[in-house]
Amino acid sequence: MKVLMRGNEAMAEAAIRAGCRCYFCYPITPQGELVEYMARHLPRHGGVFLQAESEVAAINMVYGASAAGVRTMTSSSSPGISLKMEGISYLAGARLPAVIINVMRAGPGLGNIAPAQGDYFQATKGGGHGDYRLIVLAPSTVQEAAELVMLAFDLSDRYRVPAMILADGMLGQMMEPVELPAPIPPEKIPPKPWALTGAKGRAPNVASSFDLDPYRFREILRALWQTYREIEKNEVRWEEYETEDAELVLVAYGTMGRICRTVVRQARKEGLPVGLFRPITLWPFPYEPLRKLAERVPVLLTVELSSGQMWEDVRLSVEGRAKTPFYGELGGVVPTPQEILSEVKKYVR
């Protein structure tokens, strides 16, 4: 049965259905409905909803819950995510799974509450300190947002790498019909033998990112590195739309991805051979599929709500095989399909 839900609400409900039982937050627009939804519904499922005294506190509570083996999540919007970055680095270092939702708004600084995609670098290239990666998933519809939240919990547990949902204010605020994924029964969640559950009858487990011996720490990071290569091999996800005969392919993710779908439809109506390549995992980025596309499509036009962040990964994929122009909007302004179509027409007619 389809229900009409906001992106924020659908992500919250999906987290509960994925078995999230500890949620820690500090409120910020435009993800307020996510907090409200969790406050209302999570306790009914026997979970803990806790509004912390700060973002820093919230992410460290996530660390604690995750170390205890619970599926746990936090959510915020851009400036709040910046505050959580130290904790996220510690989660990555201690190999603790967690889901972090970033409903992006315009920055830098306090910026404003309008939708933007300026946190791509922060999500995919570090953000926190040290040599780590996050699994980064970018939904473009409310339906996909719900599904990717479920997936984020599974992937994060499987690889013991924190996962981030990179959404934005538009996706968080808009309502769309959604077919909610079935809840995962608790017994279906794989056990976590590494969790800190009391060391009775076994050697103690430790959740830490601290090791003063460089050689020992190197081994930990080598194992982590190995995991990242595995994720890159197994988990790359993307969507192609009308790319078969395209002479120009738009490359866009999240909200921009869905808007570009409309652009493709309008372009096709006018007889222009335009397609869409939409990365769903921003890390691991779909370098290889995009490279293959660049071998037969002369123009890959990247469209982002930023001054060009994913654009760098597009150019890394293409390596000069095709033209890679960029079109972006700034400050929380969302371009209309017409504006993007005008840009498209500079390259194909």
């Binding site: 389809k2 009409l4 627009t29 435009p30 509450i113 204010g169 538009m170 605020q173 808009m174 309502m175 769309e176 019909p177």
Partner: peptide, 22 residues
Amino acid sequence: GKVLARAAMERGFEVTWLPSYG
């Protein structure tokens, strides 16, 4: 807007509802 969106959904249409917020 929400009521219109819901009516459309119940009638089998695809629909989005986007508010100005803040």
